[in-house]
Each structure stands twice: as structure tokens, then as C-alpha cells.
């Protein structure tokens, strides 16, 4: 964990030092210009990207890639939509060549309605990719045993979901997220997916999570750049609150104003 007394609050992901704790997706923005504006407003140092089929006639891949390169951010390619270990591994290999990075956001989707990870396939793919030199960012559930297996497979970062992708429900299971944080005190933990508003991001950071990854909540907001700014502030506030050492909740009220010296204390209550 970070030294609370220290001002330097650097996040290290696979040895890469980062000052921003907000990772932003690049999909679903109204326009490339708004995407650019939002990434800048989020002060993101990492953005997620993907690979899709390129037709011979179009050059959409190149245009998008030029836009991202101009932003000067680090890219985290994903294996979004992959449903088998084979699909995910092949997609990761293609991404490594195209994006020239060994980072991969590993998604192996197990179910259509919830887009929840197939954690068995996820662990298997993480093992294969880690052995092949990839630095894997696994999109997983809050399951602690799965998390253990992912670390044993070679992952040095874990990305549990807050809620299913695109639902904007926030943190569905704060208890399990808290347990995960307590159990893996030295592992960078990033809440990925399900975040809807800045207070969700702040809540995850207050639990001691190291970063937030989100896309839809910014891209689909009425004003994506303004929402990106709001999320940057939410993440910063949550992180600062966590580092400042929050008090524990309690059941009964406790007066904040001193009781001693209150006038009329010796009068009988009516």
C-alpha cells in the first residue's frame, strides 16, 4: 500500500509508473473530436482499444489509430466479445502485433445477458498468455478463489467488475470487493465495468481500489467531456479519502460537539 504520509502517489502497473488512476474506453463516443476531448478531460494515461474486422475498401482502422497515437496515451487492447480461450488468445496475439504492446485486457465472456466472465476460460487463457510473455489485465468477477488462480497464472493486476458491462449500477457487491482488497493488499486492483456516475468511482477508490476503468458512463453522457472531468475528480476525491484514513461506520449516534460543559445539563428532562 502507499505511504499515507508521502505526497507521491504513483500507481505501478507491470512496472509502468502512472499518476492517473482513471482508465478510459474509446468506444461509443458521438464523434472522434468528442472522444479526444473526453480523454483529455479525464486526464487518462491509459485508454482501452480493440480489434475488429477491416474491409479492403475502408481505412477506418488507420484513422482511429492515428487519432489515438496523437493523444500520446498508452493503449490497453482488449479481447472484448471473445467467448472461447482460443478466440481470446488469438485476438491477444493479433493485438500485440498491431498495437506493439504486451499489455492485454483479457475478456472471455461466458454469458450473454450479464456479459459475465467465463472465469474458467479466463484462468486458462491467462496462463497461456502469461507464459507467452503477455502482461495480462483480467476482467474478472469479485470471486476471491478465481483471483488467487489468476495470480498463480501469472497476472499481476486484477480487474473485478463493479457491475455487468454497460449497466451503470455501480458496485453491486461492496462486501466482496472489500474482502478482495483486504486479501490482496499488494496487488493492483482496478474496478472495471458497471460504473455509472462519479460517486460509484469514488466509492471504489475509498475501498482502496487502485484505479477505475470505464467507458459507457463517459461516452454516453449528455456531455462526455464534462462527465470525464467529473469522473477524474471523483477518482481523485475517493483516492484522497482512502489515503486520509476514513473512520469506521457505527450503528449508534455519537455527538460531535463536546458533551462536557453543555448548558442546562443539570436540568431534569421534561
Amino acid at each position: 500500500m502507499q505511504d499515507i504520509a508521502s505526497d507521491a502517489d504513483v500507481l505501478s502497473l507491470y512496472g509502468v509508473p502512472l499518476s492517473s488512476r482513471l482508465i478510459v474506453g474509446t468506444a461509443q463516443y458521438p464523434s472522434p473530436a468528442i472522444l479526444t476531448e473526453a480523454i483529455k478531460a479525464a486526464r487518462a494515461e491509459i485508454v482501452t482499444v480493440s480489434l475488429r474486422r477491416e474491409s479492403g475498401a475502408s481505412r477506418s482502422g488507420e484513422k482511429f489509430w492515428a487519432l489515438i497515437r496523437d493523444l500520446g496515451v498508452r493503449v490497453l487492447p482488449n479481447t472484448a466479445g471473445c467467448r472461447t480461450v482460443k478466440e481470446a488468445v488469438t485476438t491477444a496475439e493479433m493485438a500485440r502485433e498491431v498495437f506493439n504492446t504486451s499489455w492485454i485486457k483479457l475478456e472471455v465472456i461466458g454469458e450473454e445477458d450479464t456479459l459475465q466472465p467465463d472465469v474458467f476460460g479466463l484462468v486458462e487463457a491467462a496462463e497461456i498468455l502469461s507464459r507467452d510473455g503477455f502482461q495480462v489485465f483480467p476482467y474478472t468477477t469479485e470471486d476471491l478463489v478465481v483471483a488467487e488462480k489468476l495470480l498463480r497464472a501469472g497476472c499481476e493486476v486484477l480487474m473485478p467488475w463493479g457491475a455487468p458491462i454497460g449497466t451503470a449500477r455501480g458496485l453491486n457487491n461492496p462486501y466482496a470487493l472489500r474482502a478482495l482488497r483486504a486479501h490482496f493488499s499488494q496487488t493492483p486492483l482496478i474496478v472495471d465495468a458497471g460504473i455509472g456516475v462519479p460517486s460509484h468511482a469514488a466509492a471504489a477508490m475509498e475501498l482502496g481500489y487502485d484505479a477505475i476503468l470505464l467507458n459507457t458512463a463517459i461516452a454516453k453522457a449528455a456531455d462526455p467531456a464534462a462527465m470525464a472531468r467529473a469522473f477524474a475528480l471523483g477518482v481523485e476525491a475517493g483516492r484522497a479519502g482512502f489515503r486520509a484514513g476514513p473512520i469506521e461506520p457505527r450503528d449508534m449516534a455519537a455527538p460531535s460537539t463536546p458533551v462536557i460543559g453543555r448548558p442546562f445539563t443539570d436540568l431534569a428532562r421534561a
Binding site: Q28, R53, N215, T216
Partner: peptide
């Protein structure tokens, strides 16, 4: 055969 290129992603 699959031929892919960079795209927006979450």
C-alpha cells in the same frame, strides 16, 4: 481468414 485493424474499445 480474419483480417483486423485497430478500433474503439471499452
Amino acid at each position: 481468414i480474419e483480417i483486423v485493424s485497430p478500433r474503439q474499445g471499452g
